[in-house]
């Protein structure tokens, strides 16, 4: 059994989502190689070579992979799949964009966002906003899997794998990159942070989000949001936590002015400790909070910031 893991990176830094995906692959059993596809990725490849238990790093360095767009990624991965029985990638937007294309080309059904690996062909995945867990066994000859990385521990370093350069993706491609507007922040990444503080509609405006940010900076936390806060334009789209946004599982999640709709809970209910601050004592968020504070957030949050 040979498994290909696709690295999560930005051409400069190898992200921990990769190490967690390796952990998921280890539960399947077999040899594990890591694909680093991007532009100028020598550094990232060298980092991937250090992941404990990795047999080999396969590097594809080409201008068409700089943004890891769907068609070029599909081309690289599909070409490699002669050599592998399974391919796993983190379920971030980079990979959920093209992994179903890979599955369709290989004529297999993708197994999306797995939170458990029982063996080489059986996986657990949340469905219905995480209100049910499907245990599925794949009969396909090759497995195409995306991994909900928050459900897996990281794999440490200690490996010393070789790096093999492979040939360029075979274009031309019918989509091209035009521009991007990335959210700048010095705070930890939402999906990686030990503490996440999220604000909802109750915050009321983008200016008011400053009180969430002040608390976050005091605690070294990442800032998230509910869909309602994103829709209202208080914060950018990439702050959204939930069924259709990001999944997080920090040590501490603080939900402020968030009611606790099932779609929001889907993205944060696996956090270790959950705190809710809401003025409505019947808000559903209190049903899953370890510590609930019924209070006006405009009074409680500045007090909280002051006290820590």
């Amino acid at each position: 059994m040979a498994i290909l893991i696709i690295a999560e990176h930005d051409n400069t830094v190898l992200k921990d989502a990769t190490h967690k995906t390796v952990t998921a692959a280890k539960a399947m059993g077999g040899d594990i190689d890591v694909l680093v596809a991007g532009k100028d990725v020598e550094g990232v490849s060298a980092e991937a070579a250090k992941i404990e238990g990795v047999r080999k790093v396969v590097a594809c360095d080409h201008i068409s992979l700089k943004r890891q767009l769907a068609e070029s990624m599909e081309s690289v991965v599909v070409d490699l799949m002669d050599r592998y029985d399974a391919v796993l990638a983190p379920d971030t937007t980079t990979h959920t964009n093209y992994m179903p294309r890979v599955a369709a080309r290989l004529d297999v059904q993708q197994i999306s966002s797995v939170t458990g690996v029982e063996n080489a062909d059986t996986f657990v995945r949340p469905i219905y906003a995480g209100n049910a867990m499907a245990h599925v066994q794949s009969s396909d000859p090759k497995k195409v899997v995306t991994v909900r990385t928050t459900a897996f521990d990281t794999t440490g370093e200690g490996g010393d794998a070789d790096v093999e350069a492979i040939s360029d993706p075979s274009g031309p491609f019918k989509a091209e990159f035009v521009s991007e507007e990335l959210t700048e922040s010095d705070r930890p990444e939402l999906t990686d942070a030990n503490i996440v503080i999220s604000g909802g509609r109750g915050i009321g405006s983008s200016e008011n989000f400053a009180i969430i940010e002040a608390l976050a900076d005091k605690l070294g936390a990442a800032v998230g949001a509910s869909r309602a806060a994103v829709d209202a334009g208080y914060v950018p789209n990439d702050y959204q936590v939930g069924q259709t946004g990001k999944s997080v599982a920090p040590d501490l999640y603080i939900a402020i002015g968030i009611s606790g709709a099932i779609q929001h809970l889907a993205g944060m209910k696996d956090s270790r400790v959950i705190v809710a601050i809401n003025k409505d004592e019947d808000a559903p968020i209190f049903q899953i909070a370890d510590y609930g504070l019924v209070a006006d957030l405009f009074k409680a949050v500045p007090e909280f910031t002051e006290a820590v």
Partner: peptide, 8 residues
């Protein structure tokens, strides 16, 4: 996308 917005 996870980092913000991207136009293709």
């Amino acid at each position: 996308v996870d980092g913000g917005l991207q136009t293709v």
